[in-house]
């Protein structure tokens, strides 16, 4: 216990002794803020659980997610050793759900690596440079924003061909403009701050100012926005899957599973409902976490 309190005191110090110490202390304080938010912690736990499930899917699965058994089709949950029942081809829904988590997280990860990054670059460059660069970049953003997101994604997928990677690309291409807007708005408020002037007065060029001084301040609001959008991304992926333009049939993507179950929704409710609950849970978890991160990442003073 003493070791624990010693560690805690070390992390909560007001006088860090090294760069690493200072960074760890800052992280620890952020973690404490997050931990005091019950709902955000709930979201985090659900997500951690989901990631573990995705990683250990082969161990947890009771059946082969692709194995069809037409004799066992549309069994209700609990029947014949199928926890969540079976779908119209007799595949075990529980096992498919586990493998589906991999696909959902894969999609989320890829989108997160593309859309906010593109948005951040476009937005901060536009905001900091101003003038015609700003006008050109923001009008391009407006064009993307002018289309309904799903329709635009549909058009991209139609042009690129169906498949998960293309769905991800389509979602990313339609998801970046709001990030660009946020990043630009943030940049416009930060750009005239004295600390930006101060670093410019040290002879720092625009590249350094944008990447090292403006980005760190924009990233927090983007991270929050991303976690809040995560639900939308998963739903869009699911919608594409539902329309048959995302993951292709045998693969257990949640949206595609709902799409399959749609025909049987009246007499075999579980086929569509169970993946629906999964999508709902992950979306809610991301939303809750996003709300909590807002408190942690708020760059304003937290010593009040």
């Amino acid at each position: 216990m003493t070791a624990d309190t010693g560690m805690r005191a070390w992390l909560l110090t007001e006088e860090p002794t090294s760069r690493r110490h200072a960074r760890l202390a800052a992280w620890y304080k952020g973690w404490l803020t997050l931990r005091s938010n019950t709902l955000a912690m709930l979201g985090l736990i659900v997500l951690a659980f989901l990631i573990l499930v995705a990683i250990f899917a082969p161990l947890l699965a009771t059946h082969d997610p692709f194995a069809q058994d037409l004799g066992q089709r549309l069994l209700a949950p609990g029947e014949g050793g199928h926890l969540f029942g079976t779908d119209n081809l007799g595949r075990d829904i529980y096992s498919r759900l586990l493998y589906g988590a991999r696909i959902s997280l894969y999609i989320v990860l890829l989108v997160v690596m593309v859309a906010p990054v593109v948005g951040l670059i476009v937005g901060t460059v536009a905001g900091y440079a101003g003038g015609w660069i700003d006008i050109v970049l923001m009008r391009v953003t407006d064009i993307f924003l002018a289309f309904p997101r799903l329709i635009l994604a549909l058009a991209f997928v139609a042009a690129l061909g169906a498949g998960i990677e293309n769905a991800v690309l389509a979602i990313s291409l339609t998801a970046w403009p709001p990030y660009a807007r946020i990043a630009r708005a943030e940049t416009l408020t930060i750009r005239h701050a004295d600390y930006i002037h101060a670093i410019r007065l040290q002879g720092a060029g625009p590249l350094r100012v944008v990447t090292r001084h403006i980005w760190p301040l924009c990233i927090s609001s983007l991270v929050i926005r991303v976690t809040l959008d995560m639900a939308g991304i998963i739903l869009t992926a699911a919608a594409l899957g539902f329309l048959g333009l995302g993951a292709q049939p045998p693969s257990p993507e949640w949206g595609a599973m709902i799409s399959d179950g749609r025909q049987y929704i009246l007499d075999s409710w579980w086929v569509a409902t169970i993946p629906g609950i999964a999508i709902f849970t992950i979306s809610l978890a991301f939303n809750l976490l996003g709300d909590g991160l807002r408190d942690v990442l708020d760059p304003k003073d937290d010593n009040s």
């Binding site: 004295d194 600390y195 002037h197 040290q202 002879g203 001084h213 760190p216 003073d301």
Partner: peptide, 19 residues
């Protein structure tokens, strides 16, 4: 030039990068 000339701003709450 910036090696020779430097500036101190009015509001110390706004002139240091918060992060």
């Amino acid at each position: 030039f910036y090696r020779k000339v430097q500036m101190v701003f009015q509001d110390p709450y706004a002139s240091l990068h918060p992060r």
